[in-house]
Design a protein around this nucleic acid. Structure first.
Length: 788
DNA sequence: TACAGTCGGGG
DNA sequence: GTGTACGACTGTA
């Protein structure tokens, strides 16, 4: 009997028996442990069918223990009689279940398609990088397992992970790479791809010697690792990419699917066993929160690190809900099977509203405070206990399979005298406008899942604010908070997602209804306290009051709003000035989400303008940001009087730069996503034409993939960036880029009284090489910004 | 002018 | 393996 303490690295089914646990021991060694871990799935339905299923499962080769028992379905008040099938070896469960489900399509199956990691998290409280104490026998079999920390610890000590980076020297989609750049502990080298044998031998030696826990690559999923594995096969020199020699690697093919209301493309993926592979180019949102965010996501969601790095946050929050359900003994349905409650047309009109959006007072405003509800929708779900099983129709409480009840047991509707809070009677709360009621008796599945997340995110942000800017822990806190943000944001969308296991459209609508009400309450509070409300957008409002320009002066309003709504709210900042833009199509109409401004601390906020769009060429975006930064530095009197001549010089300077040919082509690249297959385009967009160019060179892109291109003269008007030959510099469509720049600049200066047409006229007449003289007070600042 | 195609924002 | 619904805007015909 031996005792081991360390960090949990990896967890997966052993092909023969039980679960494999990889532990990074405090002794510095990596331990491969085995643990017996049977998995149970359930089936419910007509008795006769369950009996047949029983006989069927008994006849199968897998070792299965069968029993009849009762479990709780989230939507049924009464326990559900089920058949429990306990499969001895987790690796055999998916296959057995697939056969059973195919044979008995009318039965409802539960807990049947969850990964081993989630089952293990529910059963043992494990999560990736959890600190564990393990007792093992002589054969490295786990006899006892104790988890020593929780995902909710704010700053767990970082495990001593070993990292190895592998990168091709160039983007393989753009040009054939020549080298693999390798960087590890006291190691940096470049291996030639032209000589496969030495490459493979060297890489194998490096992997053995360094024995990294994490292989961090660029294009490792989509190109590098598949390429290396292929070479390894061809030369009969297998690479030890996985730490577990018996497991090889797992390939997941590329795929496109519909989500976010659009087509999404995910490249192929390569998963390892016993160590992790993360491809910095194929990891969703990776650039936003980095490795620290990935570890944090893995810890709180219980998803393996390699999955947490690649999956969208939707699957993260979904995993958390499933673990909550498993821990509560609530069945996790195999397929989500829910229809919306029937609704009249009039109800549809009201309930299908989303967030409240106002039309701002367009133009330039000074000393404006922006206040935002913190994680508004998740906070609403928690505060009002909104969850698929708690929201229901009062006159029709049993629409599907049962009435809304709390998680921890049955709660009968009661109607005692009116409670203290308006809209609440006993255990029931009436949702404004929708005619829905929410059971308040027991915390729902979603609020239970969300509460620790909301608390931790606030704690992280607070900790981040306490730490000095130079402290590296501050960046770590920030990365973690950013990762949490995405979990919280998608949790709301998931309520309304038709295929979510724990989604229900009525719950989704209840959330937005409360959101609208909270915003209106906030508006009333602000107006009661003498503020004028310039704009409101879903969870934020922009307010102004003569004489109010310091953060402290907003505190009474914040307290009042928190008091009236019950929801947390904070000051985002006070703008020195903010400009709300009118519609480009009709200048009389303001639009809700195109604005920019500068806060008192000098930081900028931009929404909806060209610089925020992913398809804007970087050079255009940077010119626009630089211009806003310059405007932020200008004194009020300059803004009023001397702006036009200065601006025209600024513009000529930028246009001269464009014509000079000194801007790197990458800076002029537009990037757009293909929304469909090429032959499905009815009118060929620039992106479609660029994709067609690539297709004729044998590079076929699929719907959901991005295509990068330059605007060029003549037909077809674009030049795809990943074509083998770059375009002639002289064929660049400079007039097109000039127009894009003028539009971006026009949007910024419109609130300052300068019309876009004027810029266009003057630009045409300007000499190509006008010397640009910054205003004296601006010179320093602009030099600094342009450099970045 | 109509409509097809693409993007954002939440934080 | 998993977010929605919608409006603004641009380019093409």
């Amino acid at each position: 009997m031996a005792e081991l303490t360390g960090w949990l690295l990896d967890l997966y089914p052993d092909p023969q028996a039980g679960a494999v646990l990889w532990l990074l021991g405090e002794d510095g060694k990596r331990h491969r442990l085995l643990q017996g871990f049977p998995l149970t799935f359930y089936a419910a339905g007509p008795n006769e069918q369950l009996r047949q299923l029983w006989r069927y499962l008994q006849s199968q080769p897998e070792v299965v223990e069968l029993s009849r028992t009762e479990r709780r379905d989230l939507f049924c008040p009464q326990p559900l009689p089920v058949l429990a099938a306990q499969v001895a070896h987790p690796a055999q469960q998916p296959g057995l279940f697939r056969r059973a489900a195919g044979r008995f399509p009318e039965l409802n199956f539960y807990d049947a398609d969850l990964s081993l990691a989630l089952h293990h998290a529910a059963a043992h409280g494990t999560f990736p990088l959890a600190r564990c104490r393990v007792e093992t026998d002589a054969e490295n079999k786990v006899q006892a397992l104790q988890v020593l920390d929780t995902p909710w610890d704010l700053e767990p000590p970082p495990p001593p992970l070993r990292l190895l980076r592998l990168e091709p020297d160039v983007d393989p989609a753009h040009a054939p790479p020549k080298y693999v750049v390798v960087r590890g502990e006291r190691l940096a080298c470049r291996l030639s791809l032209a000589h496969p044998r030495p490459l493979l031998l060297n890489l194998s030696a490096i992997l053995r010697q360094q024995d990294p826990d994490l292989l961090l690559t660029l294009w490792g999923d989509t190109w590098l690792l598949p390429h290396l594995l292929e070479l390894g096969q061809k030369w009969r020199l297998p690479l030890p990419l996985s730490r577990d020699p018996g497991m090889g690697v797992e390939h997941r093919p590329e795929r496109t699917y519909m989500a976010y209301g659009q087509v999404i493309y995910r490249g192929r993926q390569v998963y390892l066993f016993g160590r992790w592979h993360i491809d910095g180019c194929n990891a969703m949102l990776f650039h936003e929160y980095g490795l620290d965010g990935v570890y944090e996501l893995a810890r709180v969601t219980s998803l393996p690190v390699q999955s947490a790095a690649r999956l969208s946050p939707g699957s993260g929050i979904s995993a958390m809900q499933m673990v909550t359900a498993l821990r509560q003994g609530v069945l996790v349905p195999w397929h989500k099977q829910q229809a919306e409650l029937p609704k009249s047309a009039a109800e549809l009109m009201i309930s299908d509203q989303g967030g409240l959006v106002y039309q701002p007072l367009s133009g330039l405003h000074r000393d404006v405070a922006e206040i935002d509800f913190i994680s508004m929708y998740p906070s609403i779900m928690r505060h009002f206990n909104i969850s698929p099983e708690t929201v229901t129709h009062p006159e029709n409480p049993s629409p599907l399979r049962g009435e809304g009840v709390g998680l921890r047991g049955e709660t009968e509707p009661t109607s005692p005298p009116d409670g203290a809070e308006p809209g609440v009677r006993g255990d029931w709360r009436l949702v404004p406008q929708l005619g829905l009621v929410i059971n308040q008796g027991q915390p729902g599945l979603i609020p239970l899942t969300l509460a620790p997340l909301l608390d931790k995110r606030l704690a992280l942000k607070q900790r981040q604010a306490e730490l000095p800017a130079w402290d590296p822990r501050r960046q770590v806190c920030k990365a973690k908070a950013t990762a949490h943000k995405w979990l919280l944001v998608t949790c709301f969308g998931y309520l309304g997602y038709k295929n979510a296991r724990f989604g229900r459209i009525e719950a989704h609508q209840a959330v937005t209804a409360y959101g609208r009400e909270a915003l209106l309450q906030a508006k009333e509070a602000a107006e009661d306290m003498g503020f004028s409300v310039l704009h409101m957008y879903v969870d934020g409002l922009w307010v102004q009051k003569p004489g109010v320009s310091q953060p402290g002066q907003l505190q009474p309003l914040l307290l009042e709003i928190a008091e009236r709504t019950g929801l947390p709210i904070a000051l985002d900042g006070i703008y020195r000035w903010v400009a709300f833009l009118p519609s480009r199509v009709d200048g009389r109409v303001p639009v809700a989400n195109r604005y920019f401004g500068t806060f008192q601390d000098g930081s900028l906020k931009l929404r909806g303008v060209e610089a925020r769009r992913g398809d804007t060429p970087p050079w255009i975006a940077r010119r626009q940001v630089a211009l806003i930064e310059a405007l932020a530095q200008l004194a009020d009197d300059t803004l009023a009087h001397d702006l036009l001549p200065w601006l025209l010089r600024w513009l000529s300077h930028a246009l001269a730069e464009l014509r000079s040919g000194r801007i790197p082509s990458e800076q002029l690249l537009a990037a757009q996503k293909l929304s469909r297959a090429l032959d499905e385009y009815r009118t060929p967009s620039p992106a479609a034409r660029a994709a067609a160019q690539l297709a004729s060179e044998g590079k076929h892109l699929r719907a959901g993939q991005r295509v990068r291109f330059l605007y060029t003269l003549g037909e077809p008007g674009v030049h795809a960036w990943d074509l083998p030959t770059p375009p002639d510099r002289r064929s660049l469509d400079l007039a097109r880029y000039q127009e894009l720049l003028i539009r971006a600049v026009g949007a910024v200066v419109q609130p300052f009284g300068i019309a876009e047409d004027e810029l266009r006229l003057r630009a045409r007449g300007s000499a190509p090489n006008v010397t640009f003289w910054p205003l004296p007070r601006l010179r320093e600042n602009i030099a600094a910004r342009v450099a970045t």
